[in-house]
Every structure is written in structure tokens, then in C-alpha cells.
């Protein structure tokens, strides 16, 4: 197993009137090389689950094992050595005031000591250029340009490259195409597919889009109110249609939720 979550529970604002049970006794095993898409309505706990793995907060209960190591007590920056992340907000994954090559160099040293050697090494430039060429955005000729000059889509593409530059044990994608226009979003998804398959990365991808969740990955998880209510993998997942997904959801939860935002397919 690449990632094991064992009985994870997380409350927000515990003990106050705003108390929310964000993750309720979640146990999940993700195998090496699995690509899991995670869907669910707003507030279902999808992003919380990802942030919990990333170490943005510590769960109230439970154990997180990543690549055979118990990382439950590791702070976020320490776990980052094992994790590549792409956020929903394209501005979050890069430093606007720094150049493309400086951003890439920062990402290349993920999980390594940063000393007084040169930040951007001459010999790395060629590799950066080659990685950017695959994006087909012309960024390979703009290594010294400030990232703030790039569009949201270009920045998200750059973030994807950065997240996978130093090979991560697990890749966490948090609605990473939601803030982009459909065409750019599709390009980022294609890039995701290419990078994940090319490197055989273990991936968790949160999405609001059922079609996306069905098309991508070999396993699908549906969350609702902090629990995993559906977990389908392999052949069964490949045959799954949007209608099946909705029907499964209805039968499982037996709730009227026609107004639910999840139905934005």
C-alpha cells in the first residue's frame, strides 16, 4: 500500500456551536500506482481528506501511513518530501514574483536540504526546458519571465510540472481544473493523465465533475458528510455511467437532494 488511512476523524470548531464533523472514522487503502478520483457534494470532506494527507492539520484521531511510514505526527513541510500537490487556485501553486526557472528550481529541491548553492543551476536549465516543451505553451523560451505574467492556465500547467518534477510518492490534486475555463481545464486534465501514466504516480484527485471522475483513474470514491459512501475500482469502475452513479447515490443515501450542488455534471 502507498497510502493507508486508519480510522481518521476530524472535527472543526470542536466544542463550539459551529462544530463540524469533517471526517468521520475514515479508513482507506490506496495501492501503489492507483489513480483515485474523489467526488462528493460541497462539504462532503473531499478537500479535508486531501489536506489531512498533506498535513495541513492533524486529525483528532487516526493514523496516516504513507509509503510504509507513519506520518501522522509529521508537519506539512516534512510530508512535502513525499507529496506533490496542485491546488484549486492556480495562483497558489507558484510564486508570482519569481521567474519560471526559479519556481522550477524550488520544486526540484522538494524534500531536500536547501543550502548556499546556486538556486538555479546551469545544468538544470536544459531539463526545465525539455519538461516545458511537452506543455506546448511556449514556456520553454520564457524561463526568465516572471510567473506573474502567465495566465491562470499556464500557471496551473507549470504547477503540474512542478508537483511532479521531484518524483512524489503520492500526487494530490484538489479540484485543480475547477477555476479554469473548460478548454484550459481539459488541457490540464490531459497533462495530468500524461504525467500520471508516464510516471506511474499514485494519485488522489478531488473533482466536482462526475464525467471527469468517471473518465479519469482506475478507482472512484464518493464522499458524503465526512464518510466514504461509495468505493468502486477496476472493471466495475470502467463500466460505470453517470446515471449509475446517481442511482447508487440515491439508494445509498435515500435522501432527496435535487438541489445538491453535486448534480452539476
Amino acid at each position: 500500500m502507498m497510502l493507508e488511512l486508519i480510522k481518521i476523524t476530524k472535527y472543526f470548531h470542536r466544542g463550539s456551536v459551529n462544530e463540524v464533523l469533517a471526517l468521520h472514522d475514515i479508513s482507506l487503502d490506496v495501492g501503489r500506482g492507483d489513480f483515485v478520483s474523489i467526488i462528493g457534494s460541497n462539504g462532503a470532506g473531499k478537500s479535508t481528506l486531501l489536506n489531512c494527507v498533506a498535513g495541513c492539520f492533524f486529525p483528532d484521531q487516526g493514523v496516516i501511513v504513507l509509503d510504509q511510514r507513519d506520518v501522522s505526527k509529521w508537519p506539512e513541510f516534512k510530508r512535502a518530501a513525499l507529496i506533490g500537490r496542485v491546488f484549486q487556485d492556480p495562483l497558489l501553486g507558484t510564486c508570482a514574483s519569481m521567474s519560471i526557472e526559479q519556481n522550477l528550481a524550488l520544486a526540484l529541491r522538494r524534500g531536500r536540504r536547501r543550502g548556499l548553492g546556486r538556486g538555479v543551476r546551469f545544468e538544470d536549465r536544459e531539463m526545465f526546458r525539455e519538461k516545458l516543451t511537452h506543455l506546448d505553451l511556449g514556456l520553454e523560451n520564457r524561463l526568465q519571465d516572471t510567473v506573474g505574467l502567465l495566465s491562470g492556465g499556464q500557471r496551473q500547467a507549470l504547477t503540474m510540472v512542478m508537483a511532479t518534477l521531484a518524483r512524489p510518492e503520492i500526487l494530490l490534486l484538489d479540484e485543480h481544473t475547477a477555476a479554469l475555463d473548460p478548454k484550459t481545464g481539459q488541457q490540464i486534465l490531459d497533462l495530468t493523465q500524461r504525467l500520471v501514466e508516464g510516471m506511474g504516480l499514485t494519485t488522489l484527485m478531488v473533482t466536482h465533475n462526475m464525467h471527469q471522475a468517471l473518465r479519469m483513474g482506475n478507482r472512484l470514491i464518493m464522499m458524503h458528510r465526512g464518510e466514504v459512501i461509495l468505493d468502486i475500482a477496476g472493471q466495475e469502475k470502467a463500466r460505470l455511467q453517470v446515471d449509475d452513479l446517481l442511482a447508487r447515490f440515491y439508494t445509498l443515501k435515500k435522501e432527496a437532494f435535487s438541489s445538491d450542488k453535486m448534480l452539476l455534471v
Binding site: 498533506a54 491546488f87 497558489l92 510564486c95 514574483s97 524550488l106 548556499l116 548553492g117
Partner: peptide, 22 residues
């Protein structure tokens, strides 16, 4: 322009990003 100096610039610019870079 050193590795450490660059992470200092990044800390001021985007602390969430540089934390996720370890």
C-alpha cells in the same frame, strides 16, 4: 540567489506554496 535565499523570497511571496515544496 542561493537555494536558501530563493526559499526566503518564496516564503515572503507564497508561504503555502513553499511549504508544499518542503
Amino acid at each position: 540567489h542561493t537555494e536558501f535565499g530563493q526559499s526566503m523570497l518564496a516564503t515572503g511571496d507564497n508561504p503555502r506554496m513553499i511549504t508544499s515544496q518542503g
